[in-house]
């Protein structure tokens, strides 16, 4: 089975994440950049499917030049090749534009059976791109998967949301987005890291994908960030001194908050 995995480089959740003052886009210089953890799980799932059924795993990513580090990590884990869409014109693109570009980039991969993605990235947290790509490619979408299995050309997914657990099926090719419960990703081994050096990464621009540069980027985005402010610091809270009535006071507070 040939699998495309969508990966994204994001600022490390442990570092301070900021937007630039100039255009309210992500300040990429301010934080360490890593392969998004949910994408590691998507890559891991793709590798497990490949190990069970054979085939090829292609990583597709859109991002600036430094996103090669995230792609390299996916290749070190065991993916076979990569397509990297890198273009200045993409700066500030929204979810719809991103989905269009990724759909075109996926189109350069021959004969794929499955597109795997994380359910949402830790930076934007829109969680919309996998569904949009499915729409653009005219493929079924199975999102929020915590378990994926196959029977011939049918993919079955355990879909977990706040509403509960559902089992959904689709015929291949399909788009599947996975949640953090799907698996524990492997760590790249010495062999994997060395092998990744020789794996092909096809770096393309939006023009290469047949997209006009004017269709992407901040100027044409459907959403605009007008203002951004840091989260206010946590307030000190309310302190209850226990003079024998502490329990009552805490209960009153919780009742006041409608918690009990």
């Amino acid at each position: 089975m040939n699998i495309v995995v969508l990966v994204k480089q994001v600022p490390d959740t442990w570092s301070e994440r900021k937007l630039t003052d100039a255009d309210h886009t992500l300040d990429r210089e301010a934080a360490d950049a890593v392969l998004d953890e949910i994408n590691e799980r998507a890559v891991e799932e793709a590798l497990r499917i490949k190990e069970a059924q054979g085939g090829e795993v292609t990583v597709v990513s859109m991002g600036p030049d430094r996103a090669t580090d995230a792609i390299r990590k996916a290749l070190s884990m065991g993916a076979d090749k990569a397509v990297h869409v890198s273009d200045e014109a993409l700066h500030g693109s929204d979810a719809v534009q991103t989905a269009r570009v990724l759909a075109k980039a996926i189109g350069t991969v021959e004969g794929y059976d499955l597109i795997l993605a994380g359910n949402e990235a830790t930076d934007g947290r829109a969680g919309a791109v996998p569904a949009m790509i499915a729409e653009l490619l005219g493929l079924p979408q199975l999102t929020q998967a915590r378990k994926v299995s196959f029977d011939g050309s049918t993919v079955t997914v355990e879909r977990e949301t706040e509403e509960g657990l559902t089992t959904v099926q689709a015929s291949l090719p399909a788009v599947v987005s996975v949640t953090e419960k799907i698996n524990e990703p492997r760590y790249p081994s010495f062999k994997g890291i060395m092998a990744a050096k020789k794996k092909p990464v096809n770096t393309v621009t939006v023009a290469d994908l047949g997209i006009d540069a004017g269709e992407v980027g901040l100027a044409g985005a459907l959403t605009t960030v007008l203002e951004a402010a840091p989260k206010p610091p946590r307030t000190a809270g309310e302190r209850v001194e226990d003079d024998g009535t502490g329990g009552t006071k805490i209960a009153e507070y919780l009742v006041g908050q409608k918690l009990i």
């Binding site: 580090d69 390299r72 990590k73 070190s76 760590y187 790249p188 081994s189 010495f190 890291i193 060395m194 050096k197």
Partner: peptide, 15 residues
């Protein structure tokens, strides 16, 4: 090299 840094990170993440 980037590979050596990545190998160190891999061991560090595992541990």
């Amino acid at each position: 090299s980037p590979e050596q840094r990545q190998f160190a990170a891999s061991i560090g993440d595992l541990l």
